[in-house]
Computed example of a mutant assay.
Amino acid sequence: MMSLPAHLQIEFTLETAAHDEAVEALSAEAFGPGRFTRAAARVREMTPHDRSLSFVAMRGAEFVGSVRQTRVMVGTRPAVMLGPLAVKPAFKGKGAGRALMAMAADAARLAGETAIFLVGDRAYYMPLGYEPLPARSVLMPGPVDERRILGLALVPGALQGLSGAVGPR
């Protein structure tokens, strides 16, 4: 896990129900009302995120950021959909998001998951090990820019053949 500058004093913990309101408020701030029309939101309507794979960042009592993961099927294969990842503007670029991503990947790997996918910005996620998935391989339940569907293999070869409609497990 990466280390953050000590002066930030950020602590990372598993998400609990007590964080729901703060996560929703941050998601609203980061992604606006349009977030509900996105394909990833359609997936989250089908099945809830998994708190054992989701984390928050706190600075004392101040909520700094969060990452959520949802166990899904991609065709006939289990996978994890990551998102949303959100960090308060004052903490962007300081490593909190990258730390949350590392924790999420580690938790998924330890839980026996083999692959994570997300819909996101290549410039941010590719340096974290994510790679573009082939066009029309992961079929989201709604419109999505396929160039933004990225995957992370948690075991060698886990992204090969990952294809099909995304749905609940």
Results as ranks from 00 to 15, higher is better:
residue 89 P to F: 12
residue 105 A to H: 02
residue 74 V to D: 00
residue 81 M to N: 01
residue 47 T to N: 03
residue 33 P to S: 15
residue 44 R to F: 08
residue 51 R to N: 01
residue 57 A to F: 07
residue 16 T to A: 05
residue 140 M to L: 15
residue 98 R to V: 15
residue 31 F to I: 09
residue 80 V to I: 10
residue 78 P to N: 06
residue 84 P to H: 09
residue 156 P to L: 06
residue 121 D to M: 13
residue 111 A to P: 00
residue 106 D to K: 06
residue 32 G to N: 03
residue 164 G to A: 09
residue 165 A to Y: 02
residue 142 G to R: 02
residue 42 R to M: 11
residue 162 L to C: 12
residue 162 L to S: 09
residue 141 P to N: 03
residue 126 M to P: 12
residue 50 D to W: 03
residue 65 G to S: 14
residue 87 V to L: 09
residue 103 M to Y: 14
residue 79 A to R: 03
residue 59 R to I: 15
residue 134 P to D: 12
residue 34 G to R: 01
residue 84 P to A: 12
residue 119 V to F: 08
residue 124 Y to P: 11
residue 69 Q to P: 01
residue 64 V to A: 15
residue 50 D to A: 09
residue 39 A to Q: 06
residue 11 E to M: 05
residue 162 L to G: 07
residue 128 L to E: 08
residue 167 G to L: 07
residue 100 L to M: 04
residue 120 G to H: 06
residue 33 P to V: 13
residue 139 L to Q: 00
residue 156 P to M: 03
residue 27 S to I: 02
residue 96 A to G: 12
residue 20 D to C: 01
residue 69 Q to F: 11
residue 155 V to T: 13
residue 42 R to Y: 04
residue 125 Y to M: 03
residue 44 R to M: 13
residue 92 K to I: 13
residue 41 A to P: 03
residue 139 L to T: 04
residue 72 V to D: 03
residue 124 Y to R: 03
residue 29 E to W: 13
residue 89 P to N: 14
residue 143 P to K: 05
residue 50 D to C: 06
residue 142 G to F: 11
residue 153 A to W: 08
residue 23 V to R: 00
residue 60 G to L: 10
residue 158 A to Y: 02
residue 98 R to W: 12
residue 148 R to L: 07
residue 81 M to G: 01
residue 25 A to V: 09
residue 29 E to M: 14
residue 86 A to C: 07
residue 41 A to V: 09
residue 105 A to P: 04
residue 29 E to G: 11
residue 18 A to H: 02
residue 130 Y to P: 08
